[in-house]
Simulated scan of single mutants.
Amino acid sequence: MDYPMGNASTFSEYMAYRKVSDLGLRVVVGGLGPDEFLMGYVRHALVLFGPDAVLKAGLEAYRPLAAKLLHTAGQDIDPAEAVTRLVLRGPDPEGRIHALVTEAMNRAGGDLARGLSLSDLATAWRPLVMTSDKLASAYALERRSPYLARELVELSYRLPVKHKITDPAEGKRILRDAAKALGLPREVWGSRDKVGFASPVPAWLNGPLASWADAQIRTALAEAPPALRPLLEGGLKPGGRYDRTRMQALLAAAWFSNQPVRTAA
């Protein structure tokens, strides 16, 4: 990866490519794009419709994520703050993510849906594409992403929000309509039980591997530079399903521990 990546799903994706390679295949087709461009993530629905509407739509599995936006009645959350809370999976001590999201929202000129798309482009989109390409390249796989064709991406950005999402549990509206028109079964275009490409690693780090993870982080803390200490210390606290601080701390500890020791000449 060339640098620490505190997202456990990279392990799942890496092993998927390994299996594909073991089968003797050399070209894979990926689905990157629609979730980002066509309001396919639950976080989009949470900002557009609110946490209560999302939970009522049957997405109960996302209650921990929705809880980031649940607040005292009458206290509205600024859109940029709401998006930042949903995007963050760990600490943001210098407010870099919030600044990027705020700039994206300002560029959208009051168009909330466009602001969400621009926020994704400014924060998660580039690392996501680079990660998938590097993981596939590790097994000499050619990874093709048909949804990233330039014309399709540009069309997606121009589409009114009604063609992207009209129901909290059914993003990517235009793709659902196309699938329905092509005669695909309802369980394809009518699915309302979206689940991300989750990894069991975070649960392991807070469960059977907790003592091991703590030991790794504490060992790194003993010699870590001041700038790295807040992240490592945060990783000693158990996190929830949508908190990657512990994972980030562990990866940072491994990265730091494997760096060559440099001494002055």
Score class of each variant (00 low, 15 high):
143 R>T: 00
189 W>P: 02
9 S>K: 02
89 R>W: 02
41 Y>D: 06
199 S>E: 08
15 M>S: 03
163 H>F: 12
41 Y>V: 07
13 E>S: 09
74 G>M: 05
256 F>Y: 13
70 L>Q: 14
21 S>E: 12
16 A>M: 12
166 T>H: 07
119 S>M: 05
233 E>H: 10
173 R>V: 00
223 E>S: 14
80 A>M: 10
201 V>Q: 02
236 L>G: 07
5 M>Y: 12
151 E>D: 15
11 F>H: 12
82 A>N: 09
233 E>Q: 14
40 G>M: 06
147 Y>N: 05
72 T>A: 09
171 G>I: 03
148 L>R: 04
61 A>V: 07
119 S>T: 14
201 V>P: 03
20 V>S: 04
254 A>E: 12
257 S>A: 15
151 E>K: 13
131 T>L: 07
66 A>L: 02
166 T>G: 10
7 N>G: 02
64 P>F: 03
74 G>I: 11
97 I>C: 11
83 V>Q: 04
43 R>T: 00
111 D>N: 11
6 G>Q: 11
152 L>V: 13
229 R>F: 09
145 S>K: 06
209 L>D: 08
157 Y>W: 15
231 L>E: 03
178 A>K: 05
33 G>N: 07
178 A>H: 01
189 W>H: 07
100 L>I: 03
140 A>D: 14
59 L>Y: 06
150 R>H: 14
195 V>T: 14
177 D>M: 14
104 A>S: 13
234 G>W: 00
206 N>G: 06
102 T>Q: 08
176 R>K: 13
191 S>Q: 14
219 T>E: 14
6 G>A: 13
238 P>H: 08
237 K>H: 13
248 Q>H: 10
31 G>Q: 07
75 Q>I: 12
253 A>Q: 04
82 A>E: 11
73 A>G: 02
213 A>E: 03
241 R>G: 01
118 L>Q: 04
66 A>E: 07
257 S>T: 13
257 S>N: 15
261 V>W: 13
32 L>R: 11
139 Y>S: 06
139 Y>L: 09
5 M>H: 09
15 M>F: 13
48 L>W: 05
249 A>T: 01
